[in-house]
């Protein structure tokens, strides 16, 4: 889907300035302008700026951002949510994705991926499964806890978004030739995502069914799961997820969700109506609530499809 002059203008006059102005003096980005630098907005800002056709224009900004991101890596090779935190988390995948996209620090990225492959969520442990079987009501949550992906924070359960982000990273890094540890995690994680799908199509954060009632899908998790599973784009589950996303897009009220949905359609090569009028309206109303993630997602959605969102076998 080519960018129109209107897309280029909005991106250049609203999204990109919002990103560049918000860069902190330490090189990172906070979730909003003036807030302390954090891994997630920094990685998103870098992905957005580097995906832009004229990314050379932003070389100094990108360079300082990369420096911040590299410096934030912990001694165990994971990335924390904020630089001052001492424990790594799911954002390791996003940080690695950003550096990989920038062709920067391959050793740091490889070490980050290794950390992810060794980082198991807590719910699948045998004692836990036994305990759940003994005490939990049978229909409380329908899910196969033997299928594990990745958690938001160490020692907790698998959820859709961190699992999908890590799968995207692994596909980008290994291009179909997965080392054995990554291959094992990939298979389990893909099965976990399909297991957690809402009965009516799409995904929420990870509860497909509670007390026999079907979970309601959400835009963000559906987008990330569909992108992570794009290798299986013809599968009925993918198609029903896409169908739900297409049917929902007109009711999407948030620019961040709107941009994410559009990014997903781009990854699947689906022509969708322009989101520019809605983004323009949202910006006039709330200035994206100052949210750097939204500015980055809009930048990506208004540009040509970004390479890191699709891979061989996915198209």
């Amino acid at each position: 889907m080519p960018s129109t002059p209107e897309h280029v203008a909005f991106r250049g006059q609203v999204c990109l300035p919002m990103l560049t102005i918000a860069q902190n003096s330490d090189g990172g980005w906070g979730y909003q302008q003036g807030k302390q630098s954090a891994t997630e907005p920094t990685a998103w800002a870098l992905l957005a700026l580097s995906s832009h056709a004229d990314s050379r224009e932003f070389s100094p900004v990108i360079s300082r951002g990369k420096d911040w991101l590299r410096a934030a890596q912990l001694p165990d090779h994971s990335w924390p949510a904020f630089a001052k935190f001492s424990e790594g988390c799911w954002l390791t995948s996003l940080a690695c994705l950003a550096l990989h996209q920038l062709k920067d620090s391959p050793d740091a990225v490889a070490a980050g991926a290794k950390w992810l492959c060794n980082e198991w969520p807590a719910e699948g442990k045998l004692w836990r499964r036994w305990l759940l079987r003994m005490i939990a009501p049978r229909n409380r949550v329908r899910q196969n806890v033997a299928l594990r992906g990745w958690s938001w924070t160490p020692g907790t359960s698998s959820w859709v978004e961190p699992t999908a982000c890590t799968l995207i990273l692994l596909h980008q890094l290994f291009s179909g030739a997965f080392p054995s540890d990554a291959e094992r995690r990939r298979k389990l994680a893909e099965a976990m995502l399909y297991d957690r799908m809402c009965p009516g199509g799409g995904w929420n954060s990870g509860n497909a069914e509670v007390y026999g009632v079907a979970g309601q899908p959400l835009i963000g998790p559906t987008v990330w799961a569909l992108i992570a599973l794009q290798k299986y784009r013809e599968r009925a589950e993918n198609q029903s997820g896409l169908k739900w996303l297409l049917s929902t897009q007109e009711q999407i009220e948030g620019p961040g969700s709107l941009a994410l949905a559009h990014i997903c359609f781009q990854a699947y090569g689906i022509e969708a109506p322009s989101i520019l009028p809605a983004l323009r309206h949202a910006y006039e109303q709330n200035r994206f609530m100052g949210n750097i993630l939204v500015a980055a997602a809009c930048t990506l959605a208004l540009d040509a499809p970004a390479g890191w969102l699709s891979w061989e076998g996915g198209r």
């Binding site: 979730y31 954090a38 997630e40 949510a81 904020f82 935190f85 988390c89 799911w90 958690s151 938001w152 924070t153 020692g155 907790t156 359960s157 959820w159 978004e161 961190p162 954060s205």
Partner: peptide, 9 residues
């Protein structure tokens, strides 16, 4: 932004 969505911890 520290604990995820949901705050599973």
């Amino acid at each position: 932004n520290c604990y995820g969505w949901p705050k599973n911890i």
